[in-house]
Write a protein that binds this DNA or RNA. Structure first.
Lengths: 351, 351
DNA sequence: CTGAAAGCGCTTACAG
DNA sequence: CTGAAAGCGCTTACAG
């Protein structure tokens, strides 16, 4: 590997000058700057990133902190159906990081995962900041991050601290739009599988639905609200349980598209047509939606905006010690073929 | 941050001794070792990873090199439907890396992406090795990696070099099993959408099908072989084109499960029942398969074995300068509901 | 078995 | 504007 020493010799200057020329900042005469750059080019020099991190006491690296339940594997969650949504967001995270020249790091967590250890392991790696994705509020890492002195941006979790803020979708407005769409189609009895109870997303989504109904002078039937896990299988199971119990609803709001796929399967097994008998709406707008039978009406989360702004916000916090203000990203209803006019309820209320 | 200096003082020894006690290797008296460890515990010391990388001239980091077409985003590909398969593998990569205490790095590629630059950027980061996933053989990065002196393991690409080897699935045996299954159900005319032409996976999969047919004294109808892109949309388009042209096949082999989803949609639009009219087999065994209508018969790739063994192999190469031998992972047919007895061909050959 | 010293490749006050 | 020197936090021959 070429070192700055060699560049200095070649250009007839000191290493200090090479460093200055490279980092632009200081005053270097045009002539010397040119000599240095020529030397850099002809030797194919690139500064040692590790050495820079050492002296700067900080690496140009953003650590990814992904998913709670995982115990040691970020991708464990990504691989599960309910996480497909995050992937697309990570793509934009990666692009934005690359654009600003930050590496992304998935730290291995050694020595057991006591929360204090977690922060320390980030510190020993000199990470510049951390992007926390899908961490639940109760995750010990989330707690540690909120308290620590490391710039942190949470995505889809409302954690806030002196050095921590968040970026989230407008969940409630999304389900509000979805519910209004159902209302306009004549639906009055709506079942909701909002996802895991108590979570931010599930709670806000439920809220949006309630608000739209309340605005129309209606109320949600509490017994038609069925929290369950976010994945396809759990949603499938819960839908089967619901269908075994009652059928007096004409529409169903799912917490995610992947949940909707499980629900679709349950409806199919019960020979219930979509949207003929029941309308179904997902959430997220994963690309798979288009290929479902029928193609799924859903609420789109702007994953690009979420990913990019999260990184931008984080870098601002890192480089400018900027204030950590939360960011809310709008959502939009995408109408496809899984929603239609409500069948007459009276006719089948107690079939 | 606590430094080894402080630990040394507390334990009444030199920094050299702290380092020795920590790295186990050298001869340190039991008594001193204990004193040092006590000091480490009470101070909450953990060595600075960056400083270690600096002096060792190598970081404990594995770089991920993901996907060709991407231009600057690994997750860009992961987010596309055809890549869902890789996610699950990455989960095991991550677990294995964590188990052996290596960090995973997604390097940002700066200054344009000339191949030489790519290697250099890995060198300046002092990465210990690289795991290349889904890189096509023609990717400039693949070429650079094969020639470079950095330990590299390719997954699903047969690149080989003095410091580079690969781990791959037994694609051809997978489609051989699938084809034998179809033959046993009476199918004789089989259409194949093997994926992108000329790729390793597509070529081997096609080969397995041909071999099984040849063994039964049959041949593939070249016009029923339809290469196309790996994603859901491309498969959908290609299936529509095929159906518009001819229907004299009773079974269809897809290059991946996500492709099968697109094909399923095309069949549905043509009111062709699965498996009543046509049997369909996917490849990969993504978890979504179970929720398709009908649940998809497919060939399972052992993603855990691929991910784990790839990392193990890489670490062996890094730490023991071990010989770089290729690894082939077996595949297995998983029969679900999308395959059934062949309809009588004669009756509908030229409907 | 243990310590003093050198060195990994940079950057940054401090002088000039 | 530029150089000599110190220092970032470790590890590792080299002595003893």
């Amino acid at each position: 590997m070429v070192t700055s020493e060699q560049v200095a010799r070649r250009a007839g200057v000191s290493r200090a000058t090479v460093s200055r020329a490279l980092n632009g900042s200081a005053h270097v005469s045009e002539e010397v700057r040119k000599r240095v750059h020529d030397a850099i080019i002809s030797l194919g020099y690139e500064p040692d990133v590790i050495a820079q991190s050492m002296v700067r006491q900080r690496s140009r690296t953003i650590a990814l902190s992904l998913f709670y339940e995982t115990q040691g594997s970020a991708f464990a969650q990504l691989g599960q159906t309910q996480r497909y949504f995050y992937l697309d967001m990570l793509k934009h995270v990666e692009q934005e990081a690359a654009a600003t020249n930050y590496d992304l790091l998935l730290p291995s967590r050694p020595y057991g995962s006591a929360p204090g250890n977690y922060i320390r392991s980030l510190q020993t790696r000199r990470v510049a900041g951390v992007l926390a994705l899908g961490l639940s509020q109760s995750d010990p890492r989330a707690h540690a991050l909120v308290g620590a002195d490391i710039p942190t941006v949470f995505i889809d979790s409302m954690a806030k601290g002196p050095r921590a803020t968040y970026v989230k979708s407008d969940h409630s407005d999304g389900t509000r739009q979805a519910t209004e769409h159902l209302l306009s189609l004549g639906h009055r009895r709506i079942a909701v599988l909002p996802g895991r109870a108590m979570g931010l997303a599930a709670t806000e989504r439920l809220l949006g639905c309630q608000q739209a109904l309340a605005y129309a002078g209606l109320a949600l039937d509490a017994e038609l609200v069925r929290p369950c896990g976010w994945n396809t299988e759990d949603a499938y199971q819960e839908a089967v349980a619901l269908l075994a119990e009652r059928r007096d609803f004409t529409a169903l709001l799912a917490g995610s598209d992947l949940m909707a796929i499980g629900i679709l399967r349950a409806l199919h097994e019960y020979a219930i047509r979509v949207p003929g008998d029941v309308s179904l709406i997902g959430f997220d707008d994963v690309d798979l939606c288009r290929y479902m039978e029928p193609p799924l009406t859903t609420v789109r989360q702007d994953r690009e905006a979420m990913g990019r702004r999260a990184v931008q916000q984080l870098i601002t916090m890192i480089e400018e010690q900027g204030e950590a203000s939360p960011i809310v990203i709008p959502t939009h209803l995408v109408v496809r073929a899984s929603t239609g006019p409500a069948r007459s309820c009276a006719a089948e209320a107690h079939e």
